[in-house]
Design a protein around this nucleic acid. Structure first.
Lengths: 147, 147
DNA sequence: CACAATCATTTGATTAGTCAAGTTATAAAA
DNA sequence: TTTTATAACTTGACTAATCAAATGATTGTG
C-alpha cells in the first residue's frame, strides 16, 4: 500500500484545493446572498442570455435535472425568468439579478484572482493555466477504461 | 463586463476539471460499488486507523456533520465499525472494506494518474504539482477579505 | 384527425455536503 | 452528590447534484 504516483498527488491537491476554495467562495458570496454555484449559473446566463436549459446545463457541466432544480430555486428568489418558447424554455436574468451581478462580479473576480496573485508571478500563472488547460481538454475526450 | 483575469481563468478551469474528473471517477468506481467520496474516506481510514471522527473530518476537509452522515452510510454498508471509546468514537475498517480497497486502490491510482500521464511529461507534472501545492498551502492560511 | 416519435424539462429516490441547535459522555466544582 | 462545563457526535432544515423514469410540447405520418 501507500504507493503514490505524482499524478495521484496532483489529483488529491486539486480536489482539496477546489473543495476548500469553493467553501471560502461560498462564505465570501454570503454578502450578496448567493452561493458559488448560483453565481456561476447567473454569470453564464448573463453572458449567453437568452438561452435554453440544455445549453446552460452544458456550460456549467451539470445534468439537465440538476439545472432544472437550480433554476427553480433561482426563479423563486426572483433572479431569473423562464418562458416556454417553442418547445424549449428560454432563460433571462431579471433586473434584480443584473443589479446584484454588477456589484458582485468585480468583487468575486478579485477574490478568485487573489488565490493566485498572492503566491505566483505572472509567468507561473501562465504556466499553470496552460498545463491545466491541456489536462482539462484531454479529460474531455477521455473514455472510461474497460472493465 | 467580461473582464477576466488570468487568475479567474485558472479558477474556472480547476473547478470544471475537478468537477468533471470527479464524475468520471464516480463512474469508474461503480465497478467496486463505491463513490469517489466513499473511496476517499476509506483510504484515509486505512492509512490512519484507528482514528476519531474529528481527525477524519479534518483529513478529508469536511465538517463534523458531514463526516457523521458519511460514516452512517459506510457503517450500514458494512465497510466500517465505530466503537464508543472514552468520549470519542474510534473508527476502523472491516475485513470487507480492506478486501475491496486492496483491489480498488491500485486501479483508482492508475485511473487518477492517467489524467496527467497522457498529456504531461514528468517535468511538467512536477511543475504543476509544486505550483498547486503553493496555491493550496497559501489558501489554507488565507483570511476572508473584510466587507 | 389520431397516434407515434422525439426533444426538453421535471420529478422521485439517493448521495453528499453545510450550519446551527441538540444530545451524550466525561470531568471538575460546589 | 447534584450541577456545570466541555468536547464529540448527531440531527433538522437546507443547497446541490446524480440517474432514470415520467411528463410536456411539437412535428410528422398513416
Amino acid at each position: 500500500m501507500r504507493n503514490n504516483t505524482i499524478g495521484s498527488l496532483i489529483w488529491l491537491r486539486l480536489m482539496r484545493f477546489t473543495n476548500q476554495s469553493n467553501q471560502m467562495s461560498n462564505d465570501f458570496l454570503k454578502r450578496f446572498d448567493l452561493t458559488t454555484a448560483q453565481f456561476d449559473v447567473l454569470m453564464q446566463i448573463s453572458v449567453y442570455q437568452p438561452l435554453t436549459q440544455m445549453e446552460l446545463a452544458e456550460k456549467v457541466t451539470v445534468t439537465q435535472g440538476g439545472i432544472s432544480r437550480m433554476l427553480v430555486r433561482l426563479e423563486n428568489e426572483g433572479y431569473i425568468v423562464r418562458k416556454q418558447d417553442w418547445k424549449t424554455k428560454t432563460i433571462r436574468l431579471t433586473a434584480k439579478a443584473e443589479a446584484i451581478l454588477e456589484q458582485a462580479m468585480p468583487e468575486q473576480l478579485a477574490f478568485q484572482t487573489s488565490f493566485f496573485d498572492d503566491v505566483l508571478n505572472h509567468e507561473e500563472q501562465t504556466t499553470l493555466y496552460t498545463l491545466m488547460t491541456r489536462v482539462h481538454k484531454h479529460s474531455q475526450k477521455k473514455e472510461l477504461p474497460p472493465e
